[in-house]
Amino acid sequence: MGTDFAAFCRSRPIVSAALHNRLMRNHRRFRMAEGAELVGRQGNSVEMQVSIPLDDEGFLGRQCPECSLLFRMNAEDYKALPDDLTLWCVYCGHHAEHSEFLTAQQRERLLRAVGDLGMQMVSQSLNRAFRGLSRGSSGCSVSITYESRPFYPRPLPGISEEPLTRIRTCPGCHIEYAVFGEHRYCPVCGRLPAESVAFDALEAEKARLEALEALPGETKALLREQGGFTRNWVDTMENLVGVVEALASSLFRAAVPNADDLLRGKGNVFQRLDDTADLFVAAGYADLRISLGPDTWQRLTETWATRHLFTHNDGVVDQKYLTRVPTSTARLGQRLVVTDDMCRRALDDTKALCEALVALSP
């Protein structure tokens, strides 16, 4: 594990204020596990410092109190942030005071340290209460026996959370963080720029294709037989259109002052390639069809038509598809076949389209 990261656990007093004062005067008499120590007091609270082990990359785990998903942050970046930081969940966008983002394992470690302190505080109270009390006094019908034993804290639980696989850098604040799924937010800045989300989504689609190809032969054969590969390729086609729709809509609304007026009554206009290009041209921007060239634009048109066919007609070729893709050799009523090569080519073309859309922005 990497260097420990100091965390503070402020527990509410469980004894009287007088005992609390004695506690702080005699704190050296308490045995604390390695990684935990009393460092002072604040009002009626005890201030305890508990180290949180980092992973091998120097990252600190965070867990959203709303969706319970884990992400990680570069500990050096995290320490440099203000104490009153409001942290964002990278997945669901929930934001709250950063101490609310303790992981389950970190919380267990902190509570163990607090519990050890509490046990010793109670033991000291009992020692004082029974001090000088005679045992088995004559005339008493009850005999009280109390034996004080030294307390030895157990080692604090370690931290063994999911290791990170890819480090992200926020384009705004440049903080480093790691995620374990699709995300839309920087833990410090909040909502990520639309272009970051788009290109990340394209990388995810590429990674999914690569993961399928990397499966063992027997598993691949089983998935292929059950249609898993075909379903994945169709999903990729549908997802590519969604990526462009979200990016184009965000960029257009940010760049065009009267965007709402221009979009009123046009429905899901950013799902339609030529209509999207026409919108930007009407707003004074370059024509995407010219920027990308006729060959790329034609292939994109085929991808969009394929997506529409599977979304609305289960992939069965209709006249609308043949009108949009006049070069297709498919026949009316035939079910279209999507392949890995088609997906990879569509990914490359869609990435080029996203780059062209970003280049339109002022």
Rank of each mutant, 00 (worst) to 15 (best):
T296M: 02
A283G: 05
P171K: 03
P153F: 08
D341T: 15
L60A: 00
L223V: 09
V241Y: 06
T236P: 03
E238A: 03
Y146T: 04
V244M: 05
M1H: 15
L223G: 05
E34R: 13
A96V: 11
G43L: 04
V46M: 06
M119E: 12
V142K: 14
F8G: 06
N74D: 12
A277T: 08
Y78M: 03
D235Q: 12
Q124M: 09
S141Y: 11
P155K: 03
N258Q: 10
A283P: 09
R22I: 14
S134Y: 09
R107C: 04
V337R: 13
E203N: 15
C67T: 05
K351P: 07
Q120W: 14
T3A: 15
R107F: 13
F180L: 00
Q271R: 13
S361R: 12
Y91I: 00
L192W: 04
Y91T: 02
S250H: 10
F8W: 15
L133H: 10
A75T: 00
L347A: 01
P257F: 12
F8E: 15
D84S: 04
G35R: 08
A201M: 13
I144D: 12
V317Y: 05
H98P: 00
M48V: 04
L81C: 03
A214T: 06
G181S: 01
H98E: 08
V122N: 08
L54K: 01
D77Q: 06
I175F: 14
R168A: 03
R135A: 04
R345S: 09
G333D: 08
W297I: 01
D4Q: 11
A7F: 13
Q106Y: 09
G242L: 04
D275R: 09
Y177S: 01
L279D: 01
R135F: 07
P82H: 02
R231C: 15
L347S: 02
N127S: 13
L19F: 15
H174C: 03
D318V: 03
E355G: 05
V317T: 07
L81A: 06
D340Y: 11
L353F: 09
F59A: 02
S45I: 10
E47C: 13
R41E: 14
Y146H: 07
S134V: 11
A113P: 05
E225L: 14
L110T: 07
E37A: 13
F101I: 01
E195Q: 15
L102Q: 11
L360I: 06
D275N: 09
L357A: 00
L300N: 02
A254D: 14
A33W: 09
R253P: 06
V338C: 00
T86L: 10
R135V: 10
K320N: 09
N258K: 08
R331G: 07
P153K: 08
A356G: 00
R324Q: 12
S160T: 14
P13T: 01
M24L: 14
D287W: 08
V325M: 01
E66S: 14
A6Q: 14
T236V: 15
A254W: 09
M1Q: 13
L262K: 07
R224S: 11
A198R: 04
S328W: 11
